[in-house]
Amino acid sequence: MDIPIWLFIYVDSCLFLIFYLYVRKIKKRIGFQLGMNISMVMGGMIAMLSGVLFILQFPFHFTYITMLSALIGMGSGAVFGKLFDHETFVAGLTNGAVVGLMAPMIGTVVEMPGRFVLGLHILFAMSMVMILSSVIRS
């Protein structure tokens, strides 16, 4: 099955930017506990998605893609954590780094990449809906 990986990368980065701008707008209403969970979940999910999608697109550059996905995960966790506190910053950075180092390995061993990418996006959408509902409820 041929999957449009660049489309997935584009949609994910757009969702990430929109979510970041939304959280930045209402960050005064979010407590530190929810902020820590937001930075950890978003750093981990972005690191996972970027590692899997990039390794499916360029299967011959394992080293560079491991470094790139770890840096992307660290950056996204740090960007979300920097909105709230220094401790959420460190938690998001570490979680993004560890998940980003692991993600390309999963991408190389999957047998059905189309369904795996689809499942990851369903997980991403579910975690985002969960975060949005808990933000609105708080």
Binding site: F32, M36, E87, T88, V90, A91, L93, T94, N95, A97, V98, L101
Partner: peptide, 17 residues
Amino acid sequence: DRYTKTMCMALSSISSF
């Protein structure tokens, strides 16, 4: 408590890795 919990989480995961 919160500072200790966060820092111990970060330190233990990256150091043991």
